[in-house]
Amino acid sequence: MRKTIDKALEWVLVFLLSVLVLDVLWQVASRYILNSPSSYTDELAGYLLIWVGLLGAAYVAGKREHLAIDLLLQKSSPERKFKLEIFISVVVILFAITVMIVGGSWLVYTRFYLSVKSAALGMPLGAVYLVLPLSGILIAYFDIDNMYNMVKSNRKN
């Protein structure tokens, strides 16, 4: 399960970043090729960046590679280190659930309910914000999974 999600997420991210590069290159090219340059590329680029940024952040969270100050962790005994890491995971999960899942879902729901549209593409803004709860769910899932593995290996020792 975890492996499948990781793999799928990797492909989605590579795809999104590729589209992002092509979009901005097209913005430059269309100015020189077309008589009337495309008018949506800059809005699309912004939305793609939100997706790449937040989904990428979820992917990095799964790999536990977000920047942190781990002086205390390094100086701790294995026992205290284990407790601290559990605490850290809980804090991360708490943020993912409250802000990204709860806050993000309410944002998405209200955008759809009030039918807010993007300015240039005219697409529903709720679809753009959907990445918030999505990334939140992924972060929470990855951290719960990591925590489960930590507890398991701690029992063994």
Binding site: G46, I50, G104, L107, T110, Y129
Partner: peptide
Amino acid sequence: LTTFSQRMATGLDSFALL
């Protein structure tokens, strides 16, 4: 919570950050 998540997403919608 909603405001914070809105700031997170819209903050990235910046052409300079690209």
